[in-house]
């Protein structure tokens, strides 16, 4: 029962991510659990659902941090240019 659920989790996760509606996946779960699952395929597929959650989690952290660092770098670069330009102007005026 539990393993079958796990096996279906990637499908559900994808469906939920696409629809942005956790409720939808929750409703689908009972229907799809009746499917037949060959027992010999279970061990190797056991880890796929967890990985499907794990990888997006780590990817999100990395991407979010990198995007933020990029945004600070961009803003800082712009301000830095302004500072240099203004300092040059000030010097030229004196």
């Amino acid at each position: 029962m539990m393993t079958r659920l796990r096996r279906l989790a990637p499908v559900l996760a994808l469906a939920a991510l696409l629809s942005h509606a956790p409720a939808v996946s929750a409703q689908q779960a009972p229907q799809q659990m009746d499917e037949f699952v060959p027992i010999d395929k279970l061990p190797q597929q056991e880890q796929i659902p967890a990985a499907n959650l794990l990888i997006p989690a780590y990817a999100f952290v990395w991407i979010a941090v990198l995007v933020y660092v990029g945004s600070i770098a961009r803003r800082l670069g712009g301000v830095q240019r302004d500072v240099e330009r203004l300092e040059a102007d000030l010097k030229a005026r004196k």
Binding site: A9, A13, A16, P22, A26, P49, A50, L53, L54, P56, A57, F60, V61, A64, V65, Y68
Partner: peptide
């Protein structure tokens, strides 16, 4: 404040991904 938004987003996004598996629901 900006870092609260950043790290809060990290915690709030990674949390449900874990909860989906551990609790069976996203939220």
């Amino acid at each position: 404040a900006e870092l609260v938004v950043l790290f809060g987003a990290l915690a709030i996004v990674t949390g449900p991904l874990w909860a989906r598996k551990a609790w069976g629901v996203w939220w």
